[in-house]
Design a protein around this nucleic acid. Structure first.
Lengths: 145, 145
DNA sequence: TTTACTGCAAACATTTTGCAGATGT
DNA sequence: ACATCTGCAAAATGTTTGCAGTAAA
């Protein structure tokens, strides 16, 4: 459960408008406990009777991603998904493959790993993507995992 | 430049046939120095005058992935790509965003990071994906990066 | 009142599938 | 011979775009 107002403030910060569709989508995104796809978001809107076009869903996700309010991740099967997260602060996600719950991970050893790789490979490392997948405590406890 | 025969042997190992299209695709894949998309492979085949249908390209990539001879990665812009790699041995890739060159990385600290995350989050970690992106030495030297 | 934003529908890109025929073993 | 594999074309997905109208600032 992320923070709806953080999403809206991210819009303000980028000088973009707080439109009705964006407010509605922010509410829905804040309601997800973790990873969701564009289709998830779109159908959540439809289920609530909101009139938000598919294109707007994609445009809004792009926008939120560009301001760092959501991050795009790639699920193990190759699906694109998103997670709401706090901008700027570098971290990664552990995602439950049963329920989609996403938890932030901050681990300084990743930074070190990247520089080790840079040194040994000669590459200049510009970015990395680390995603961990597994089963969250609740799903383990309920025998779903 | 990976090993064409390794790809074919991976097929043998899985009891799958060495068909003409698969041999041709193996040659092409071995010719790539790094990451390539399904479309790259398909057009490389067409350019060589080979008659390999798109569906066969996807089916072959799926197959090679299922036997561990290629790995699917997700480029920063969300495109799906593949890299040939040696099966079973756990490693990651550093990918040049200029030329696509991919280099293997083996770093034991990643294993440790995963167990640290498991311990602190309570998740059971089943898999992780780590991809590093940057500019390879050659592209840096040539001023392309 | 100006410009960003919207929904729609069509376009586009990517991947999958059904099928009849070809091919490896 | 037999099952696997192939190309094709169509379909299913996923995402983007052009446009005329709408709404935020």
């Amino acid at each position: 459960m992320s923070d709806r107002s953080a999403l809206l403030q991210a819009l303000d910060g980028a000088g973009r408008r707080r439109t009705a569709p964006r407010r509605e989508l922010a509410t829905l995104i804040a309601g997800f406990d973790g990873a969701f796809t564009a289709a998830d978001l779109s159908s959540a809107a439809r289920r609530r009777g909101l009139d938000v076009g598919r294109a707007t869903v994609f445009r809004t996700l792009d926008l939120l991603q560009s301001v760092g309010a959501v991050e795009r991740i790639d699920l193990p099967e190759g699906e694109h998904a998103y997670v709401a997260c706090t901008p700027s602060d570098h971290h990664h996600h552990v995602i439950c493959t049963v329920c989609g719950l996403s938890t932030d991970v901050r681990d300084p050893s990743m930074v070190q790993l990247a520089s080790t790789v840079a040194a040994s490979s000669g590459y200049r490392i510009d970015m990395h993507r680390l995603e961990l997948f597994g089963v969250c405590p609740a799903c383990q406890a309920s025998g779903r995992g």
